[in-house]
C-alpha cells in the first residue's frame, strides 16, 4: 500500500506542476487573450470593455491574486468562457466532447487490446505457422499506417461512396439522448467507422508486443517444466505463458492513453465526430486558449490516472511487485 501511496503522491505532484505551468505559460507569452481579442476586433473595444474582459479572463490584479482566482476557478471546474463557442462555458463544451472521446477511444482501445492480445497469443503459440507468418508482418504494416490515411479511406469508401455509414456526428439529431436501446444503437452505428479506424492502426502493436513477450517466455524453464508435467496445452498457454506476458502489455496500455487521445484528433476530424480532438483542432485554429488549456489539463489528468490504474493492476497481477512493496 505504501508503494501505491508513493505513486499517488508522485502523480499528484506531477498534476500540480501541470496546473502551475498551465497558469504561467499563457502569461509568459506576449499579450493576454484580451489583447488578442482587442486586436481581432480592430480596436472597436472601449478601454472599459477591455478591463471588464480582462477581469472575466482572470488577468487583472497582481500575479498572486490571479493565481488564486485561477485555482478557485479550477476547483469549480470553471475554465472560463470559450471564444469559439461564445458564450458557452469551456467546461461544458469540454465535458460534452470528453464523453464522446472517452467512448470512442475507450471502445477502440478495448477492442484493439483484446484482438491484438488474442492474435499475439495465437501467433506466439503457433509461431512460424500460417497465421503467424501471414498476419504478423501484415499487422506490423497496418500499425505503421497513420490514423489519417485509414480514417480517410474508411470515410471515403463506407460513408461517401457506399453510404453504409453516416457522414458525421455522434448520433442522429432526431433522437433524444437517453439510455434507450434505440439511442445506444444509433450511437454505436455512428461510432463504428471512427472506432474501426483507430483499431486498425493500433491492434498490430498489441499483437506484436504480446507475441514477442510470449515467445521469449516459451524458452523459460518453468514452461519446460509445465510441459513435462503433462499439463494441457491450454493450461500452459494461458496460465504459464500468457499470464506472465500480459504484465508488460498492461504497462504499455497506460503509456498509450495519451498517444491514443492524440490519435483520436485526426479520426474525429475526419468523421466530424464531436470529441475532444475535433474541438481542440478548431480551438487551435480559432486561438481559443481557455479550451486548449483545459484540454491540456484533462489530457495530463487522464494520462496520470491511466498510469495509476496500471500501477494498481500490476500490483494485483504481479506478486513479486506486491511483496517488494510491502517491505
Amino acid at each position: 500500500m505504501r508503494f501505491l501511496m508513493r505513486r499517488l503522491g508522485f502523480y499528484l505532484a506531477a498534476f500540480a506542476v501541470a496546473i502551475t505551468l498551465n497558469f504561467f505559460i499563457p502569461r509568459w507569452m506576449p499579450g493576454d487573450p484580451t489583447t488578442r481579442i482587442f486586436l481581432g476586433l480592430r480596436g472597436k473595444l472601449t478601454p472599459q470593455a477591455m478591463d471588464a474582459l480582462r477581469a472575466s479572463y482572470g488577468y487583472d490584479g497582481n500575479l498572486w491574486d490571479q493565481f488564486m482566482v485561477y485555482l478557485g476557478n479550477l476547483a469549480h471546474l470553471d475554465f472560463g468562457v470559450s471564444t469559439t463557442n461564445f458564450p458557452e462555458p469551456t467546461s461544458s463544451l469540454l465535458f460534452y466532447s470528453a464523453v464522446w472521446t472517452l467512448l470512442l477511444v475507450g471502445l477502440a482501445t478495448a477492442i484493439s487490446f483484446v484482438i491484438g492480445i488474442g492474435m499475439g497469443i495465437y501467433s506466439a503459440w503457433n509461431r512460424g505457422g500460417f497465421f503467424d507468418s501471414v498476419f504478423t508482418p501484415v499487422n506490423v504494416m497496418l500499425n505503421a499506417f497513420t490514423p489519417a490515411i485509414v480514417a480517410l479511406i474508411l470515410f471515403y469508401a463506407f460513408s461517401l461512396q457506399w453510404r453504409l455509414f453516416p457522414l458525421g456526428r455522434a448520433h442522429d439529431l432526431g433522437i433524444e439522448p437517453a439510455l434507450t436501446f434505440e439511442f445506444i444503437i444509433n450511437v454505436l452505428y455512428h461510432a463504428t467507422l471512427p472506432v474501426l479506424s483507430i483499431v486498425i492502426v493500433t491492434f498490430g502493436s498489441w499483437h506484436l508486443g504480446m507475441r514477442n513477450t510470449m515467445i521469449g517466455l516459451l524458452n523459460e524453464d518453468f514452461v519446460a517444466l509445465a510441459k513435462a508435467k503433462g499439463l494441457s496445452d491450454q493450461r500452459i498457454r494461458y496460465r504459464y505463458v500468457a499470464r506472465n506476458a500480459i504484465l508488460p502489455q498492461i504497462t504499455a496500455l497506460a503509456l498509450t492513453v495519451g498517444y491514443v487521445l492524440g490519435g483520436a484528433l485526426i479520426t474525429e476530424y475526419v468523421f466530424n465526430y464531436p470529441g475532444l480532438g475535433k474541438f481542440t483542432l478548431s480551438a487551435i485554429q480559432a486561438r481559443d486558449y481557455s479550451f486548449i488549456q483545459a484540454q491540456l489539463l484533462l489530457l495530463t489528468a487522464s494520462v496520470l490516472i491511466a498510469n495509476l490504474i496500471s500501477d494498481i493492476l500490476n500490483l494485483i497481477l504481479d506478486p513479486r511487485l506486491r511483496s517488494r512493496t510491502q517491505e
Binding site: D221, F222, L225, G230, Y240, R320
Partner: peptide, 30 residues
C-alpha cells in the same frame, strides 16, 4: 509416462517455477 513414471528436476531452481502463480498451484496442477 512423463511424470507418473519418470519425472525431472531441472538444473535451475530459480527459473523452474512460474514467478507469478503460487507454488501450490504448480504442484496441484500436476
Amino acid at each position: 509416462y512423463r511424470w507418473r513414471e519418470v519425472s525431472f528436476v531441472f538444473q535451475s531452481a530459480m527459473n523452474a517455477l512460474n514467478p507469478v502463480i503460487p507454488a501450490s498451484e504448480q504442484i496441484i496442477d500436476a
